[in-house]
Design a binder for these strands. Structure first.
Length: 358
DNA sequence: TACGCGTGGTA
DNA sequence: TTACCAAGCGT
């Protein structure tokens, strides 16, 4: 590797690593750099901010200290431990990856990029991050930060979120990366993107590698190429608060396989254009086996966004005779309705209803 | 390849 | 208020 590193690349690394040594943040996953802690943190940080992950990281690795511990955990346990992090599919994939370690590697985490890449939920970035940060393998790890930093430094007019753009960025990294400390190099590039080479208002005046940067003399914000975004869609849904016991209400579990699988929510459904809330609720509750349905007043409403769907959820008070025991609907206590087993939309509705009054 | 997947923060 | 995300991955 060293033979391909030019004197200019060596100067780049020296400047970058000196900056990182002084500026690196004290983050939980950096305090003990084990392979498992690295893996967990990288998955948590996918599309999720440091401020969201930091307060939840230690509790998770304390509860599941090894891949084997997570491999053997129940759905309820992992979803509860992941509560508040979003993208719940990630923790199921992490568990699948942990199970693969148990089944194929005696519970150990593979040490090479190639073998890490064969684990479920481990893509090019995560494999590169674990291999380099935990095992010091000299491989690129291109996340959103690194894609932005490298496209600016090299003046690449590519979209690093696409495979072709990512490969172009990886080629540049191979020219720059020092054989002596690839892990520190990758982590420093990520940190540079987060603290200095930001998406908007980059702090080029404080950049340790501005002497090597093409975009600093251009318009840095023009790099990298932006991905085209889907238009967001406004949708409404109606839900029923059918009392069940002391402050509680009937809920249904979301089907396995769909989004938010495993969480509970108030019964209801999307509102078709022009459809009345009353007929939609009557329909949804009948399907679940409720009878003698009386739709009451609006009890609460909330706004909630899931990816590109802007949802307005409206909760109605409803009186009805409970369904037979064969129904998927079950009673939930008031405590459960504001706990980690329900969707965020449900917690918002419960909170909004509490503000109005019981 | 384009899309779906959750959440909380910022402009 | 809405737009745009923030350390991606699987399908």
């Amino acid at each position: 590797m060293d033979r391909s590193v030019s004197p200019k690349a060596a100067d780049f690394s020296i400047a970058l690593l000196a900056w990182f040594d002084a500026a690196r943040r004290d983050l939980p996953w950096r305090r003990a750099r084990t392979p498992w802690r690295t893996w967990v943190s990288e998955v948590m940080l996918q599309q999720t901010t440091v401020d969201t992950v930091a307060p939840r990281f230690e509790a998770f690795v304390e509860r599941f200290p090894t891949p084997r511990a997570l491999a053997e955990a129940s759905d309820d346990a992992i979803l509860s431990a992941w509560s508040g992090l979003g993208y719940y599919r990630r923790v199921r994939m992490l568990r699948d990856g942990a199970r693969a370690c148990v089944e194929r590697h005696s519970g150990e985490i593979p040490t090479s990029y190639a073998t890490l890449s064969e684990l479920p939920g481990v893509g090019p970035y995560t494999a590169g991050a674990i291999a380099s940060l935990a095992f010091d393998e000299a491989v690129p790890a291109v996340d959103g930060n690194v894609g932005r930093v490298v496209s600016r430094i090299a003046g690449l007019k590519v979209d690093p979120s696409k495979p072709a753009g990512r490969r172009a960025v990886e080629e540049e990294i191979r020219l720059l990366m020092p054989a002596s400390s690839p892990g520190a190099f990758n982590e420093a590039m990520i940190e540079l993107g987060a603290l200095v080479c930001r998406p908007t208002r980059p702090r080029c005046d404080a950049c340790p590698v501005r002497a090597f940067c093409v975009a600093v003399d251009d318009v840095p914000e023009n790099y990298p190429l932006k991905k085209t975004r889907q238009e967001s869609v406004a949708v409404s849904c109606v839900r029923a608060f059918v009392p069940a016991g002391d402050g509680g209400a009937w809920t249904v579990a979301i089907d396995e396989g769909g989004r938010l699988a495993g969480f509970r929510e108030f019964p209801g459904r999307w509102l078709a254009p022009g459809e009345s809330a009353e007929s939609a609720l009557r329909d949804a509750l009948s399907v679940l086996g409720f009878s003698s349905i009386t739709i009451g007043a609006e009890k609460a409403r909330c706004r909630h966004t899931i990816t590109r769907h802007r949802i307005t959820a409206i909760l109605h008070a409803v009186r009805a005779v409970g369904p037979p025991s064969s129904s998927p609907a079950k009673p939930s206590s008031i405590a459960e309705l504001s706990g980690p087993g329900v969707t965020t939309e449900t917690r918002k509705l419960v909170a909004a209803a509490a503000e109005v009054g019981p």
